[in-house]
Design a binder for these strands. Structure first.
Lengths: 138, 138
DNA sequence: TTAGGTGCAAAACCTTTGCACACAG
DNA sequence: CTGTGTGCAAAGGTTTTGCACCTAA
């Protein structure tokens, strides 16, 4: 039948739960290897896919183009505030926007809707640096 | 010295402006090749990076893990509801979201903030087709 | 002239897949 | 026993990079 309960799967799940924010499959694999398990990279990917499919994990794309995962928290996902200067990424809650996106898709009869909501800008540090360079370099 | 003004760069910029919504570098390259230009894939990537760095284009990750770009329109800001199946694009107004984005950036001390708010999904037609295939094959 | 841009192809990167074997049920 | 899961490595995809030539200022 469906899924078996292997220690590999458990380790992946545990490592995922252990991580506070998002983790890439590569990072997860590295963690697991460092943890003295001879787990394979493909296994990590497969476990992650399965976990994501069964709703135990959330999967999305990092700004770097990697797939990143997090243990599934009961309530929806969030979005990102990304610094163009240093790459700093702040996770933001946007329940209103979630609702708006769903409503907008439904209004137009769209199904299977995913939304992209991200804000690019300069973080406080980079804003200060940019201002300094501006008056400095002219 | 800074950037030169090559026809390749111009074509990339034009193709980008020509596209409603987001386009991947691969798609852009295909368009440009079909347009009778012998432009190279690497050139498209390089032009896109330059454009993104100079603020003329916005770059982000599609749900499929590709980097996607769109022309940065300084005026008449609106968003898109894009059909994954047939490419149909609906322009949507989102004043509430505009306000929210501005507020969120400010709250975190971010400056020069631009936001990306787009929804990908299946339009009514493609939804129906997908449902038909589902009950047919499943 | 100068130095940045271009094209091609190979490299690098992340992710998926084929295969033989092991292990959960 | 049955069939899913695993590990390895090779394949697949996208994006970057090296190099020689070209071209815009």
């Amino acid at each position: 039948m469906a899924q078996r309960n292997t220690w590999q799967r458990d380790r992946v799940r545990a490592a995922l739960a252990d991580s506070q924010g998002f983790v890439s499959a590569q990072e997860l694999h590295a963690m697991l290897r460092a943890d003295n398990t001879g787990i394979g990279l493909a296994t990590v990917y497969r476990a992650l896919s399965t976990l994501a499919a069964s709703g135990e994990a959330d999967q999305l794309q990092s700004p770097d183009g990697e797939a990143i995962y997090r243990a599934c928290t009961s309530t929806g996902h969030h979005h990102h505030l990304i610094c163009r200067g240093c790459g700093l990424t702040v996770e933001i809650q946007a329940d209103d926007v979630e609702a708006w996106a769903r409503r907008t898709a439904a209004t137009h009869g769209f199904t299977h809707a995913q939304h992209i909501v991200d804000i690019f800008g300069l973080c406080p540090d980079c804003s200060a640096k940019a201002a300094a360079e501006d008056s400095d370099a002219g």
